[in-house]
Design a protein around this nucleic acid. Structure first.
Lengths: 122, 122, 122, 122
DNA sequence: GTGGTCTAGACCACC
DNA sequence: GTGGTCTAGACCACG
């Protein structure tokens, strides 16, 4: 599991984990059917509580990215490429939407914002 | 004061106020020297605690967008247009930066992201 | 709060709470805008853990039946009657759906099942 | 054996098996005296643990739908049609009863529920 | 005061 | 062994 936790970011740990695993699934770094390490294993590895990971897992399951089978473990869901791409879009779009009204209030329309992004982050 | 508060967004109220006032200043809807309504007036208007507004004001002062004059009230700082534009950029850039690593982990480079923004939010 | 918990039913406590509150909201026993008691208060009352209630609350929020405002409390969402009725239907339909395939495998079609229900539970 | 296992339903596998076999017996798809395949055969077929099947068999035996003969295997019990029909009813009624109080708390009486079932699942 | 998050540790059902 | 649930107790941000 490639998970990096930042305690200083202010972002909840479970959310960091959720986002990183979700990203790995939608970008196919984790492919469908793959068994995830047990929550206890990861908890020990990252030195955090089992519950924190479980919370991330619940979110992943809700989105349909993983299936958890009590007594057997958790597995990356089998999702066709089209749907995967759709979820990838949604994840990015949702994040952007949260701030879009702020950008707009600053006077940045979609077009101007797009230009700025290329300028700032290329 | 044009301030709209959302209780369901999860974003702290003081932050919502801070962002909205900041946006109005950098887009010159509030011009330099303008006196802001008293904290109590706004608190009554928005039906929230004065503490919450105080916190927003502190943020604004910290960034240099307003000046508090003891006993007289708060005033929009006198800032030249160039500097104002710079702050406007910074506000947007900072917000974007917070999520940029997430977008990258989803496989979105600056270019692709810019395209998507135009597609989604135009 | 009218909540009755059964420890012997096998059904998770948080789910029992969720269902009972949800039912009270969709049947308008709790009307929109009503402030719910703090999770700590209820926890003390029912002698269960705060977390258990929080989990029920999260589910209620996800369905849109309540709004939780950090630092202020939780409130029954303002939902118009039509939507409320729709949610009420969905709750019942979802529960039924879980078992419908079992009824079908027993040879009960929708019609025969409906007759039996009137016969058994009137 | 016509058994279909769902890993995503949340329902324990042994219970899924129990319900499906029970349904096949009470609807006479499996007739009295029929020998069930050995536990190991089914385990291999369904790719699950023998323990899981054993548990389902125990349930079936407890209800009297099958008989285990040491060293010979399991056989569908010889039950007369009247009794079979009675068990069929009981199985459906028991499942329904589990949720009836929830439906009632949602304001659905037996009559209204029956109508809804015809509407939703016909 | 409120809810949001995290912890450590426990017991259970399932496989 | 696995995950599912629950507990008690802690610290933080928000209002």
């Amino acid at each position: 599991m490639d998970i990096i936790i930042s305690n200083s970011s202010g972002q909840p740990i479970y959310e960091q984990i959720y986002e990183q695993i979700a990203a790995q699934i939608v970008t196919k770094k984790l492919s469908g059917g793959t068994a995830l390490p047990s929550i206890r294993t990861i908890a020990a590895e990252l030195e955090i509580s089992v519950i924190t990971i479980k919370k991330a897992w619940e979110e992943l399951e809700r989105v349909g990215l993983i299936n958890t089978m009590a007594g057997k473990g958790c597995f990356v869901a089998q999702i066709d490429d089209g749907h995967l791409e759709q979820i990838r879009c949604e994840l990015a779009k949702k994040k952007l939407s949260e701030n879009m009204s702020f950008y707009r209030s600053l006077g940045y329309g979609a077009k101007e914002l797009a230009e700025k992004i290329e300028e700032w982050f290329t």
